[in-house]
Computed example of a mutant assay.
Amino acid sequence: MSEEPPAPVMFPPDTPMAYFNGLLATDLAETVDLAKDPDALDRGGWWAVVATFEGGLNAYRFRDVRPSPRPVPSGPWLGPAPGSWRSSLDEDGYRSRVLAIKERIAAGDVYQVNLCRMLSAPLPAQAQALALAAVLATENPAPYEGMLHTGTDWVVTASPELYLSRAGRLVTSSPMKGTAAPGEEFAPKDYPENIMITDLVRNDLGRVAAAGTVRVVALLDRQEHPGLAHLVSTVVAELRPGVGWRDLLASTFPAGSISGAPKHTALRIISELEPVPRGPYCGAVGYVDADAGTGVLAVGIRTFFTSTTPHGARLNFGTGAGITYPSDPSAEWAETQLKAARLIALSSAVGDAGVGPTPSRWAGT
Rank of each mutant, 00 (worst) to 15 (best):
E3H: 07
P5L: 00
A7M: 09
P8A: 14
M17L: 15
Y19R: 00
G22C: 01
L23P: 03
T26H: 01
A29G: 11
T31G: 07
V32C: 12
V32F: 01
A35W: 06
P38G: 07
D39F: 13
L41K: 10
G44E: 12
W46I: 09
G55F: 04
Y60R: 05
R61F: 07
D64W: 00
R66M: 06
R70S: 08
P73K: 00
P76I: 08
P82I: 11
P82V: 07
G83M: 03
S84W: 11
R86V: 03
D90W: 02
R95V: 13
V98T: 14
I101W: 08
K102Y: 11
E103F: 03
Q112H: 05
Q112I: 04
V113C: 04
V113S: 00
V113K: 14
N114V: 10
L119C: 08
S120W: 05
S120H: 04
Q126R: 10
A127H: 10
Q128T: 06
L130M: 12
T138W: 07
E139D: 01
A142L: 07
A142M: 10
E145R: 11
G146L: 01
G151V: 04
V155L: 06
V156K: 09
A158E: 03
L164F: 11
S165H: 02
R166T: 06
A167H: 14
R169F: 02
R169T: 15
T172G: 00
S173Y: 07
T179Q: 02
G183W: 08
G183D: 13
E184N: 12
E185V: 02
N194G: 00
M196L: 15
R202H: 13
G206R: 15
R207H: 10
R207C: 08
L219Y: 03
Q223H: 15
Q223K: 15
E224A: 13
P226H: 06
G227Y: 10
A229T: 10
V232Q: 09
L239V: 04
W245M: 15
D247F: 03
L249N: 01
S251G: 02
T252G: 03
T252V: 06
A255V: 14
G260L: 01
G260Q: 13
G260P: 11
A261I: 06
L267I: 07
I269P: 02
I270E: 01
I270S: 08
P277S: 04
P280C: 01
G283T: 01
D289C: 07
G295K: 12
L297R: 04
A298Q: 11
V299D: 01
G300L: 03
F304S: 03
T309K: 13
T309M: 11
T309C: 00
A313N: 05
R314S: 01
I323S: 02
T324M: 14
Y325V: 09
D328H: 10
A331V: 08
E332W: 12
E332D: 05
A334M: 10
Q337W: 05
L338H: 03
K339L: 09
A340G: 09
A341P: 02
L343D: 06
A353L: 13
A353I: 03
V355D: 02
P359L: 07
P359H: 04
S360A: 02
R361F: 11
R361D: 12
R361N: 13
R361C: 08
R361V: 14
W362Q: 00
G364H: 14
